[in-house]
Simulated scan of single mutants.
Amino acid sequence: MTREERRAWITSRLHPIADYDPSLANPLRSDFDLNPGLKVDNPHALRPAAVLVGLVEHDDGPTILLTRRSDTLRSHTGQIAFPGGRCDPGETPWGTALREAQEEVGLDPAHVTVAGLLHGYQTVTGFHVTPVVGFIDPRATFTPSPEEVADVFETPFDFLMDPANHQRQHREVPGGPRRHFYAMPWNDRFIWGATAGMLRSLYDALHDESGRTPSE
């Protein structure tokens, strides 16, 4: 599959930003997908956020841009995440994703072509996250903000989109029920939780019921 064919295929499976309507954008995916017994809060009370699911278009195959959160942050310390954060009032999800990527890893928005949106994702911490998929020019450079990001790295797209690498794991929550989640360990990186859940959402959006891509 050529770069142009891959772009066309991915874009065709996403929700166009031109059709985005925040009043109708209730999250359809969530941390509760693998935990149906947990309580689901009112989606209208969720705090809006967005992340950039960035595909770096290298000649030898695309990668997905990820970060490891700083060890000094108050929440989700050291976890693997997409660049992203809370939406400012009146800000679009793609505006948030590009702004946060610039603040967190120094990614120039001029190097990103927004392709579209995935279904909104509800986190157990009370956020409605809109994953914004974008194509990143491989000439882009990254400079992590030390206050927010300990490391920035790229993981092969083909690895993350291979369902054989989509593990289902669980952890015991003190005083609560066992929590199940997706995990996609890659080398020494443990990609799990909402980040892995959104990657699984991307996989589901890209593949038909047979699980085959257009190149197969």
Rank of each mutant, 00 (worst) to 15 (best):
T2L: 08
E4C: 10
R6I: 02
R7S: 06
I10P: 01
T11V: 06
R13M: 08
R13I: 01
L14H: 03
H15P: 01
H15R: 09
P16E: 13
A18D: 15
Y20A: 07
D21T: 06
D21V: 09
S23E: 15
L24W: 07
P27V: 01
P27F: 06
L28P: 04
R29H: 14
D31K: 04
F32K: 08
F32W: 13
F32Q: 11
L34P: 05
K39E: 12
P43E: 06
P43F: 01
L46K: 04
P48N: 09
A50S: 15
A50D: 12
V51L: 00
E57N: 11
H58Q: 06
D59T: 08
D60A: 10
D60P: 05
T63I: 03
I64M: 03
R69M: 07
R69N: 11
R69T: 08
S70R: 05
S70V: 07
S70G: 13
S70N: 11
D71I: 14
D71R: 15
L73G: 04
R74W: 05
G78D: 14
Q79F: 06
I80L: 09
F82M: 10
P83V: 10
P83M: 09
G84L: 04
G85I: 09
D88K: 14
G90S: 09
E91M: 11
T92M: 14
T92Y: 07
P93S: 05
T96F: 06
A97Y: 01
A97Q: 01
A97M: 00
L98I: 03
L98A: 09
L98C: 02
A101W: 00
Q102P: 03
L107T: 13
P109Q: 10
P109I: 14
P109H: 04
P109K: 12
V112R: 11
V112P: 07
T113V: 12
A115F: 12
A115H: 11
L117D: 15
L118I: 03
Y121I: 01
Q122I: 00
Q122V: 00
V124G: 13
T125F: 11
H128T: 02
V129A: 09
V129I: 15
T130C: 14
V132Q: 10
V133T: 09
V133Y: 03
R139H: 13
T141G: 14
T141H: 07
T143Y: 03
S145G: 12
E148M: 15
V149N: 07
A150K: 10
V152G: 07
V152Q: 04
F153K: 15
E154N: 07
T155V: 15
P156Y: 04
P156A: 11
F157C: 08
F157E: 15
L160N: 00
A164C: 10
N165C: 04
Q167N: 10
Q169I: 11
E172Q: 13
E172A: 15
F181K: 09
Y182N: 15
A183L: 08
M184S: 10
M184R: 06
N187L: 10
D188G: 08
R189E: 14
I191F: 05
W192F: 05
W192M: 08
W192L: 01
G193M: 02
T195F: 04
A196R: 02
M198Y: 05
L199M: 11
L199G: 03
R200C: 07
Y203P: 04
L206K: 05
H207E: 08
E209P: 07
R212E: 14
R212Y: 01
T213Y: 12
P214F: 00
P214R: 00
S215T: 14
